[in-house]
Protein backbone atom coordinates (compact mmCIF):
# COMPACT_ATOMS: atom_id res chain seq x y z
CA UNK A 1 0.00 0.00 0.00
CA UNK A 2 2.10 2.87 -1.25
CA UNK A 3 -0.47 5.65 -1.49
CA UNK A 4 -3.22 4.45 0.76
CA UNK A 5 -5.45 7.45 0.72
CA UNK A 6 -5.19 9.24 -2.55
CA UNK A 7 -8.36 10.95 -3.75
CA UNK A 8 -8.09 8.81 -6.86
CA UNK A 9 -10.59 10.36 -9.25
CA UNK A 10 -10.45 14.16 -9.19
CA UNK A 11 -6.84 14.60 -8.12
CA UNK A 12 -5.40 11.57 -9.85
CA UNK A 13 -4.40 13.36 -13.02
CA UNK A 14 -2.49 16.05 -11.13
CA UNK A 15 -1.03 13.58 -8.62
CA UNK A 16 0.40 11.53 -11.43
CA UNK A 17 2.15 14.52 -12.95
CA UNK A 18 3.51 15.72 -9.62
CA UNK A 19 4.78 12.30 -8.72
CA UNK A 20 2.75 12.62 -5.52
CA UNK A 21 2.84 8.90 -4.79
CA UNK A 22 6.55 8.89 -4.10
CA UNK A 23 6.39 12.12 -2.06
CA UNK A 24 3.54 10.65 -0.02
CA UNK A 25 5.37 7.43 0.62
CA UNK A 26 8.47 9.29 1.76
CA UNK A 27 6.43 11.52 4.05
CA UNK A 28 4.61 8.44 5.32
CA UNK A 29 7.97 7.01 6.31
CA UNK A 30 8.38 9.52 9.14
CA UNK A 31 6.50 8.81 12.30
CA UNK A 32 5.13 11.29 14.81
CA UNK A 33 3.59 11.13 18.23
CA UNK A 34 -0.19 10.98 18.04
CA UNK A 35 -0.78 12.88 21.25
CA UNK A 36 0.69 16.20 22.31
CA UNK A 37 -0.51 19.67 21.44
CA UNK A 38 3.13 20.77 21.37
CA UNK A 39 3.76 19.05 18.05
CA UNK A 40 1.15 21.15 16.27
CA UNK A 41 2.31 24.55 17.56
CA UNK A 42 5.11 25.03 15.04
CA UNK A 43 2.72 24.38 12.19
CA UNK A 44 0.10 26.72 13.64
CA UNK A 45 2.70 29.47 14.04
CA UNK A 46 3.80 29.03 10.43
CA UNK A 47 0.20 29.10 9.25
CA UNK A 48 -0.54 32.31 11.19
CA UNK A 49 2.58 33.84 9.64
CA UNK A 50 1.19 33.03 6.19
CA UNK A 51 -2.13 34.68 7.16
CA UNK A 52 -0.18 37.73 8.36
CA UNK A 53 1.79 38.00 5.13
CA UNK A 54 -1.35 37.66 3.01
CA UNK A 55 -3.47 40.14 4.97
CA UNK A 56 -0.48 42.48 5.34
CA UNK A 57 0.07 42.55 1.58
CA UNK A 58 -3.60 43.44 1.16
CA UNK A 59 -3.32 46.28 3.68
CA UNK A 60 -0.38 47.89 1.84
CA UNK A 61 -2.72 48.52 -1.12
CA UNK A 62 -4.51 51.30 0.78
CA UNK A 63 -2.20 52.18 3.67
CA UNK A 64 -0.29 55.48 3.37
CA UNK A 65 2.88 55.63 5.51
CA UNK A 66 2.85 59.36 6.24
CA UNK A 67 1.96 60.89 9.58
CA UNK A 68 -0.51 63.20 7.87
CA UNK A 69 -2.39 60.41 6.10
CA UNK A 70 -1.68 57.17 7.98
CA UNK A 71 -4.59 57.28 10.42
CA UNK A 72 -7.01 58.48 7.76
CA UNK A 73 -5.95 55.73 5.39
CA UNK A 74 -6.54 53.07 8.05
CA UNK A 75 -9.94 54.65 8.74
CA UNK A 76 -10.62 54.41 5.04
CA UNK A 77 -9.60 50.75 4.95
CA UNK A 78 -11.87 49.95 7.89
CA UNK A 79 -14.79 52.13 6.84
CA UNK A 80 -14.82 52.43 3.08
CA UNK A 81 -12.96 49.65 1.31
CA UNK A 82 -15.10 46.57 0.70
CA UNK A 83 -14.24 43.98 3.38
CA UNK A 84 -11.45 46.26 4.56
CA UNK A 85 -12.71 45.96 8.14
CA UNK A 86 -12.34 42.17 7.87
CA UNK A 87 -8.82 42.32 6.42
CA UNK A 88 -7.76 44.82 9.07
CA UNK A 89 -9.30 42.84 11.92
CA UNK A 90 -7.76 39.59 10.69
CA UNK A 91 -4.31 41.19 10.48
CA UNK A 92 -4.68 42.74 13.90
CA UNK A 93 -5.97 39.61 15.64
CA UNK A 94 -3.59 37.25 13.89
CA UNK A 95 -0.70 39.43 15.06
CA UNK A 96 -1.69 38.67 18.65
CA UNK A 97 -2.29 34.99 18.03
CA UNK A 98 0.99 34.73 16.12
CA UNK A 99 3.01 36.14 19.02
CA UNK A 100 1.05 33.93 21.43
CA UNK A 101 1.72 30.76 19.48
CA UNK A 102 5.40 31.75 19.04
CA UNK A 103 5.73 32.03 22.83
CA UNK A 104 3.86 28.78 23.44
CA UNK A 105 5.96 27.01 20.82
CA UNK A 106 9.14 28.14 22.56
CA UNK A 107 7.86 27.26 26.01
CA UNK A 108 6.88 23.75 25.00
CA UNK A 109 10.29 23.31 23.42
CA UNK A 110 11.89 24.55 26.63
CA UNK A 111 9.83 22.28 28.85
CA UNK A 112 10.46 19.25 26.66
CA UNK A 113 14.08 20.32 26.28
CA UNK A 114 13.78 19.65 22.56
CA UNK A 115 16.62 22.11 22.00
CA UNK A 116 19.22 19.58 23.06
CA UNK A 117 21.85 18.34 20.67
CA UNK A 118 21.54 18.09 17.68
CA UNK A 119 18.81 20.77 17.69
CA UNK A 120 20.79 23.76 18.98
CA UNK A 121 20.55 25.53 15.62
CA UNK A 122 16.77 25.02 15.50
CA UNK A 123 16.61 26.67 18.94
CA UNK A 124 18.81 29.59 17.93
CA UNK A 125 16.86 30.26 14.72
CA UNK A 126 13.66 29.92 16.74
CA UNK A 127 14.78 32.52 19.27
CA UNK A 128 15.79 34.79 16.40
CA UNK A 129 12.31 34.36 14.91
CA UNK A 130 10.81 35.29 18.29
CA UNK A 131 12.86 38.49 18.33
CA UNK A 132 11.83 39.29 14.75
CA UNK A 133 8.20 38.53 15.61
CA UNK A 134 8.29 40.96 18.54
CA UNK A 135 9.90 43.50 16.20
CA UNK A 136 7.04 42.99 13.75
CA UNK A 137 4.50 43.43 16.55
CA UNK A 138 6.19 46.64 17.72
CA UNK A 139 6.52 48.24 14.29
CA UNK A 140 3.04 47.11 13.28
CA UNK A 141 1.46 48.75 16.33
CA UNK A 142 3.03 52.09 15.34
CA UNK A 143 1.55 52.14 11.84
CA UNK A 144 -2.07 53.26 12.56
CA UNK A 145 -0.56 56.46 14.06
CA UNK A 146 -3.33 56.68 16.61
CA UNK A 147 -2.82 58.17 20.06
CA UNK A 148 -2.14 54.67 21.34
CA UNK A 149 0.34 53.98 18.54
CA UNK A 150 2.15 57.23 19.25
CA UNK A 151 2.47 56.52 22.98
CA UNK A 152 3.54 52.98 22.17
CA UNK A 153 6.29 54.28 19.87
CA UNK A 154 7.50 56.76 22.49
CA UNK A 155 7.71 54.28 25.36
CA UNK A 156 9.02 51.38 23.32
CA UNK A 157 11.85 53.31 21.75
CA UNK A 158 12.69 55.00 25.05
CA UNK A 159 13.05 51.64 26.82
CA UNK A 160 15.37 50.51 24.06
CA UNK A 161 17.72 53.35 25.05
CA UNK A 162 18.60 51.44 28.25
CA UNK A 163 19.81 48.31 26.47
CA UNK A 164 23.48 47.95 27.43
CA UNK A 165 26.09 48.86 24.80
CA UNK A 166 23.80 49.27 21.78
CA UNK A 167 21.01 51.26 23.52
CA UNK A 168 21.75 54.68 22.05
CA UNK A 169 22.01 53.29 18.58
CA UNK A 170 18.86 51.19 18.95
CA UNK A 171 16.97 54.19 20.32
CA UNK A 172 17.78 56.39 17.32
CA UNK A 173 17.22 53.45 15.05
CA UNK A 174 13.71 52.74 16.33
CA UNK A 175 12.73 56.39 16.17
CA UNK A 176 14.23 57.00 12.77
CA UNK A 177 15.83 60.10 14.32
CA UNK A 178 16.08 61.86 17.66
CA UNK A 179 12.39 62.01 18.47
CA UNK A 180 9.12 60.32 17.59
CA UNK A 181 8.11 62.10 14.40
CA UNK A 182 6.78 61.38 10.95
CA UNK A 183 10.16 59.77 10.24
CA UNK A 184 9.49 57.23 12.98
CA UNK A 185 6.41 56.16 11.07
CA UNK A 186 8.28 55.89 7.76
CA UNK A 187 11.01 53.90 9.48
CA UNK A 188 8.54 51.58 11.19
CA UNK A 189 6.72 51.02 7.88
CA UNK A 190 9.90 50.11 6.02
CA UNK A 191 10.88 47.68 8.73
CA UNK A 192 7.41 46.21 9.05
CA UNK A 193 6.84 45.46 5.38
CA UNK A 194 10.34 44.94 4.00
CA UNK A 195 13.32 44.56 6.34
CA UNK A 196 11.82 42.34 9.01
CA UNK A 197 9.80 40.13 6.61
CA UNK A 198 12.96 39.54 4.58
CA UNK A 199 14.83 38.59 7.76
CA UNK A 200 11.95 36.32 8.82
CA UNK A 201 12.00 34.61 5.41
CA UNK A 202 15.73 34.02 5.70
CA UNK A 203 15.76 32.71 9.26
CA UNK A 204 12.56 30.74 8.78
CA UNK A 205 13.95 28.89 5.76
CA UNK A 206 16.92 27.95 7.93
CA UNK A 207 14.60 26.81 10.71
CA UNK A 208 12.54 24.64 8.33
CA UNK A 209 15.60 23.29 6.52
CA UNK A 210 17.04 22.13 9.86
CA UNK A 211 13.73 20.41 10.58
CA UNK A 212 14.07 18.28 7.43
CA UNK A 213 17.72 17.51 8.26
CA UNK A 214 17.15 16.57 11.88
CA UNK A 215 13.50 15.65 12.39
CA UNK A 216 12.21 16.18 15.89
CA UNK A 217 12.44 12.99 17.86
CA UNK A 218 9.45 11.42 19.44
CA UNK A 219 9.36 12.03 23.16
CA UNK A 220 10.98 9.30 25.18
CA UNK A 221 7.68 7.87 26.32
CA UNK A 222 7.63 4.11 25.91
CA UNK A 223 3.89 3.63 25.44
CA UNK A 224 3.24 6.67 23.21
CA UNK A 225 1.28 5.82 20.12
CA UNK A 226 3.07 6.84 16.93
CA UNK A 227 1.44 7.75 13.63
CA UNK A 228 2.83 8.30 10.13
CA UNK A 229 3.54 11.92 9.16
CA UNK A 230 1.39 11.47 6.08
CA UNK A 231 -1.56 11.26 5.94
CA UNK A 232 -2.44 10.88 9.64
CA UNK A 233 -0.36 13.74 11.10
CA UNK A 234 -1.14 16.00 8.15
CA UNK A 235 -4.89 15.55 8.61
CA UNK A 236 -4.56 16.26 12.33
CA UNK A 237 -2.47 19.33 11.58
CA UNK A 238 -5.23 20.31 9.12
CA UNK A 239 -7.75 20.13 11.97
CA UNK A 240 -5.50 22.39 14.05
CA UNK A 241 -5.01 24.93 11.25
CA UNK A 242 -8.72 25.04 10.35
CA UNK A 243 -9.43 25.54 14.04
CA UNK A 244 -6.93 28.41 14.17
CA UNK A 245 -8.49 30.00 11.09
CA UNK A 246 -11.99 29.68 12.54
CA UNK A 247 -10.79 31.27 15.80
CA UNK A 248 -9.14 34.13 13.90
CA UNK A 249 -12.29 34.75 11.85
CA UNK A 250 -14.57 34.56 14.89
CA UNK A 251 -12.45 37.08 16.77
CA UNK A 252 -12.17 39.32 13.72
CA UNK A 253 -15.90 39.30 13.07
CA UNK A 254 -17.27 39.52 16.59
CA UNK A 255 -14.68 41.36 18.65
CA UNK A 256 -14.20 44.93 17.55
CA UNK A 257 -10.79 46.55 17.85
CA UNK A 258 -11.38 50.28 17.79
CA UNK A 259 -8.73 52.28 15.99
CA UNK A 260 -8.83 55.19 18.43
CA UNK A 261 -8.29 58.87 17.74
CA UNK A 262 -5.44 60.12 15.58
CA UNK A 263 -2.08 60.79 17.24
CA UNK A 264 -1.78 64.35 18.47
CA UNK A 265 1.47 65.27 20.24
CA UNK A 266 -0.39 68.04 22.10
CA UNK A 267 -2.65 65.51 23.84
CA UNK A 268 -1.02 64.10 26.94
CA UNK A 269 -0.40 60.38 26.78
CA UNK A 270 -3.65 58.63 27.64
CA UNK A 271 -3.66 57.45 31.28
CA UNK A 272 -5.13 54.08 30.35
CA UNK A 273 -2.61 53.57 27.55
CA UNK A 274 -1.93 49.88 27.83
CA UNK A 275 0.63 48.20 25.69
CA UNK A 276 -0.25 45.15 23.60
CA UNK A 277 -0.69 42.18 25.94
CA UNK A 278 2.74 40.70 25.23
CA UNK A 279 4.34 43.87 26.61
CA UNK A 280 2.21 43.81 29.76
CA UNK A 281 4.96 42.22 31.93
CA UNK A 282 7.29 45.02 30.80
CA UNK A 283 4.56 47.55 31.57
CA UNK A 284 4.13 46.18 35.10
CA UNK A 285 7.87 46.27 35.78
CA UNK A 286 8.31 49.77 34.36
CA UNK A 287 5.42 51.05 36.45
CA UNK A 288 6.59 49.44 39.70
CA UNK A 289 10.31 50.05 39.22
CA UNK A 290 11.97 52.39 41.75
CA UNK A 291 14.00 55.36 40.60
CA UNK A 292 17.24 53.61 41.45
CA UNK A 293 18.42 50.07 42.04
CA UNK A 294 21.93 49.35 43.33
CA UNK A 295 22.92 52.84 42.26
CA UNK A 296 21.74 52.32 38.69
CA UNK A 297 18.76 54.12 37.10
CA UNK A 298 15.63 51.98 37.50
CA UNK A 299 14.89 51.38 33.81
CA UNK A 300 18.57 50.80 33.03
CA UNK A 301 18.82 48.15 35.73
CA UNK A 302 15.65 46.35 34.65
CA UNK A 303 16.39 46.42 30.95
CA UNK A 304 19.95 45.31 31.69
CA UNK A 305 18.68 42.42 33.82
CA UNK A 306 16.22 41.46 31.08
CA UNK A 307 19.07 41.46 28.54
CA UNK A 308 21.16 39.16 30.73
CA UNK A 309 18.16 36.83 31.07
CA UNK A 310 17.64 37.00 27.34
CA UNK A 311 21.25 35.99 26.69
CA UNK A 312 20.86 33.06 29.06
CA UNK A 313 17.72 32.14 27.17
CA UNK A 314 19.59 32.15 23.86
CA UNK A 315 22.43 30.07 25.29
CA UNK A 316 20.04 27.54 26.84
CA UNK A 317 21.12 24.52 24.73
CA UNK A 318 24.73 25.11 25.82
CA UNK A 319 23.94 25.68 29.50
CA UNK A 320 21.62 22.72 29.86
CA UNK A 321 23.03 19.66 31.62
CA UNK A 322 21.80 16.29 30.49
CA UNK A 323 19.48 14.72 33.03
CA UNK A 324 18.92 17.96 34.89
CA UNK A 325 15.35 19.26 35.24
CA UNK A 326 16.41 22.83 35.97
CA UNK A 327 15.48 24.10 32.50
CA UNK A 328 11.95 22.79 32.70
CA UNK A 329 11.55 24.34 36.13
CA UNK A 330 13.01 27.62 34.92
CA UNK A 331 10.57 27.64 32.02
CA UNK A 332 7.61 27.15 34.35
CA UNK A 333 8.86 29.81 36.77
CA UNK A 334 9.34 32.23 33.87
CA UNK A 335 5.88 31.52 32.47
CA UNK A 336 4.17 31.96 35.84
CA UNK A 337 6.15 35.15 36.54
CA UNK A 338 5.18 36.66 33.18
CA UNK A 339 1.52 35.77 33.76
CA UNK A 340 1.55 37.29 37.26
CA UNK A 341 3.21 40.45 35.96
CA UNK A 342 0.61 40.72 33.22
CA UNK A 343 -2.19 40.39 35.77
CA UNK A 344 -0.45 43.02 37.87
CA UNK A 345 -0.31 45.37 34.90
CA UNK A 346 -4.00 44.89 34.18
CA UNK A 347 -5.14 45.63 37.74
Amino acid sequence: MTAPDLPSKPGGWLAERLGWASIASRLGGYSMSRRGFAFYLGGITLFLLVVQVASGILLTLYYQPDAAYAHGSVERIVGEVAYGDLVHAVHSWTADLFVASLFLHLFTVMIRRSFRSPHELSWLTGVALLALGVGQAFTGAVLPWSERAYTHARIGSELARYVPLVGGWLHRFMRGGEDVTSSTLAHAFGFHVAVLPAAVALVLSGHLFLLTRRPVQRPPQPNAESIPLYPDFFVRQGVALTGAMVIVLTLAIFVDRPLGPVADPRVSSAPDAQPPWYFLPVHAIVRAAPKELLGIEGPRFLVGAACVMGLAFVALPFLDRRGSRVTAWAAWVLLVTLLLLSLRALS
Binding site: V239, T242, G243, M245, V246, L249, T250, I253
Partner: peptide
Protein backbone atom coordinates in the same frame (compact mmCIF):
# COMPACT_ATOMS: atom_id res chain seq x y z
CA UNK B 1 -17.71 30.58 9.45
CA UNK B 2 -20.23 27.81 8.81
CA UNK B 3 -18.08 26.47 5.98
CA UNK B 4 -15.03 26.60 8.25
CA UNK B 5 -16.88 24.59 10.88
CA UNK B 6 -17.89 22.10 8.22
CA UNK B 7 -14.28 21.67 7.11
CA UNK B 8 -13.25 21.23 10.72
Amino acid sequence: LGLGALLL
